[in-house]
Simulated scan of single mutants.
Amino acid sequence: MDKRQEMLKLVEEFEVSRMTQRDFSASKGMGFHKFNCWYRMLNIEQTGGDQLQGFFRVDVGTV
């Protein structure tokens, strides 16, 4: 299994674990920042990379 497949498997495990990223990465013996980086990268690949996760444009107009 290559590194990408390994990380994809871990991300899938995380999503059903109901743990925080910090707790999950610690339980797997890996650093939080490394796991978070992989999680974001794989999430961007799955969404097509054209969406900002958690943000949307709000047009407030003029007052």
Rank of each mutant, 00 (worst) to 15 (best):
K34P: 03
G49K: 09
R57I: 14
M19A: 11
M41K: 13
Q5I: 00
V63Q: 02
K3T: 15
F14T: 01
R57Y: 12
Q53S: 14
R4D: 15
F14Q: 01
E15R: 02
R4W: 08
Y39P: 00
M7I: 00
M1T: 03
Q21Y: 03
V11L: 04
C37N: 14
I44W: 09
E15K: 05
D59C: 12
S17R: 04
A26W: 09
L8P: 08
R22L: 06
E13P: 01
R18M: 03
R4A: 13
G49I: 07
W38G: 01
Q5C: 05
H33R: 13
F35W: 00
L42D: 09
V16A: 00
S25Y: 02
K9R: 13
G54A: 04
Q51A: 06
M30G: 01
V11Y: 01
R57C: 11
S17Y: 04
F56S: 12
Y39W: 10
K34R: 11
A26F: 13
D2S: 10
K28Y: 07
L52N: 10
D59Y: 08
R22W: 07
G54I: 06
F55C: 09
V16L: 01
M19K: 13
M7C: 03
V63H: 09
Q21H: 01
T47E: 14
Q5H: 10
A26S: 15
A26H: 08
N36L: 08
G48Y: 03
Q51R: 06
F32R: 11
C37S: 15
Q21W: 04
T47I: 13
S17V: 02
R40Q: 11
R4P: 08
Q53R: 11
D59G: 12
K9N: 09
K28G: 04
